[in-house]
C-alpha cells in the first residue's frame, strides 16, 4: 500500500500525513517502546529553548470532558543538550525530523535558528512555536500579534534555509490574520492549532486545579475549533496547513484533510492510547484501498454550503 498515504508539506515529502505533535512524544524514545515510529510521516520534538527549562511548579494536569488541560510550561533540556543527545536519535527514527523551537523574545528565536541551522542535514523542518500558552513571555504572547509573527518568521528565514512551520495559537479573534502574517513572513507552512487557553476549578478549595491557574486545553473537544480554523485558512493561504487538535481516529484525519490540511499532527491521543497511530495508519490504508483515492488528493476538497 506504500504510496497512497504519501503527502507533501511544501518541499517536505512525508510517507504518511501523521506527525506526532510536539509535547506529546518527547523525542521519540518512550513511544518507540510501543511501535516502530518509522510508520509515521514525522515527529515534532518537545518544544526547545536556548536554555534548559524546569517548567511550571505543582499540579500540571486537569482532566476535562473529552480533553485535558496541561500547564507543563515548556520543560525541556535546552537546545544544546538536544543536539548532543537526541537529534541523532530522532533522525534515525525513519520519519521526518521536525524540531519545535520556542523562545521568550525575538532574539531567542533568532538564536534557535542559528543553533539549529548547522544541523540542516538532519532536520526536515523547524516548527516555530508561537503559541504555547503556559509561559509568561514569548510564544503565545508573540503569536497573537501578526506584526511580531511576520517579523520573527522573516528574520528566521534570513538565518536558516530550513523549512519553517509556524505553529499558531487559536487564542485570537481572527486566525486568518496570524496565518497570513506567517505566510507573508516567508513561513513554509502553518500548524493549526496549539492548545486553547482554559481553566478548571476545584470546587472544594475554590482554587484553580492547575498551579499555573490556566493551561492549554487539548483533546477531542477542541477538534471542531481546529477544523474551522483549518478551513478558514485554507481558503486564503498559498502555503500548506498542518492540522492539529483532537485527532484520534482515521475519520478525524480525513476530516482535517478535506477541510484543507496537507498533513496532521496527533497529540493528546498518544497520551491515552500510545499505539493509536498504528491503528490510524492501518485504517487510512484501508480507506485508500476501498475508495481508490490517495490521501494527498483529499486536501481542501471541502464543498461549503
Amino acid at each position: 500500500m506504500s504510496g497512497l498515504l504519501n503527502v507533501k508539506v511544501g518541499a517536505v515529502d512525508l510517507k504518511s500525513p501523521l506527525i506526532l505533535a510536539s509535547g506529546t512524544c518527547n523525542f521519540g524514545h518512550e513511544l518507540s517502546e510501543y511501535y516502530d515510529l518509522s510508520i509515521l510521516g514525522g515527529l515534532s520534538s518537545k518544544g526547545l529553548t536556548i536554555k534548559p527549562r524546569v517548567g511550571n511548579e505543582g499540579v500540571r494536569v486537569a482532566e476535562t470532558a473529552a480533553g485535558m488541560l496541561n500547564s507543563v510550561g515548556l520543560q525541556n533540556p535546552g537546545v544544546d543538550y538536544f543536539i548532543e543527545h537526541d537529534l541523532d536519535y530522532m533522525r534515525g527514527l525513519g520519519c521526518a525530523c521536525i524540531v519545535n523551537v520556542a523562545g521568550h523574545s525575538y532574539d531567542d528565536y533568532m538564536a534557535m535558528a542559528q543553533k539549529l541551522d548547522p544541523y540542516k542535514d538532519k532536520i526536515d523542518a523547524l516548527e516555530v512555536n508561537l503559541s504555547c500558552p503556559n509561559v509568561k513571555a514569548g510564544c503565545m504572547n508573540i503569536g497573537t500579534d501578526p506584526e511580531q509573527i511576520k517579523s520573527i518568521v522573516s528574520s528566521m528565514k534570513e538565518i536558516t534555509s530550513l523549512p519553517l512551520w509556524i505553529k499558531l495559537t487559536p487564542n485570537v479573534t481572527d486566525i486568518k490574520a496570524t496565518a497570513l502574517a506567517a505566510q507573508e513572513g516567508g513561513g513554509d507552512a502553518v500548524v493549526l492549532i496549539n492548545t486553547l487557553l482554559g481553566m478548571a476549578v476545584d470546587i472544594k478549595s475554590r482554587r484553580p486545579i492547575l498551579h499555573n491557574n490556566t493551561g492549554g486545553y487539548s483533546g477531542p473537544a477542541v477538534k471542531p475549533v481546529a477544523i474551522r480554523m483549518v478551513s478558514e485558512c485554507y481558503r486564503i493561504l498559498d502555503i500548506p496547513i498542518i492540522g492539529c487538535g483532537g485527532i484520534s481516529t482515521y475519520e478525524d484525519v480525513l476530516e482535517f484533510m478535506i477541510a484543507g490540511a496537507a498533513a496532521v499532527e496527533i497529540g493528546t491521543a498518544s497520551l491515552i492510547h500510545p499505539g493509536c497511530p498504528v491503528d490510524i495508519t492501518a485504517d487510512l490504508e484501508k480507506w485508500c484501498e476501498d475508495s481508490g483515492e490517495s490521501l494527498s488528493s483529499l486536501t481542501g476538497t471541502l464543498k461549503l454550503w
Binding site: 509535547g23 506529546t24 518527547n26 518512550e30 513511544l31 499540579v59 500540571r60 494536569v61 496541561n70 500510545p274
Partner: peptide, 15 residues
C-alpha cells in the same frame, strides 16, 4: 505520586 496523564513519560505532567 503526582497527578498523572500518560503514565509512560511523554507528557511531562507528573513531575
Amino acid at each position: 505520586e503526582q497527578r498523572m496523564a500518560c503514565g509512560i513519560g511523554i507528557c511531562l505532567v507528573c513531575v
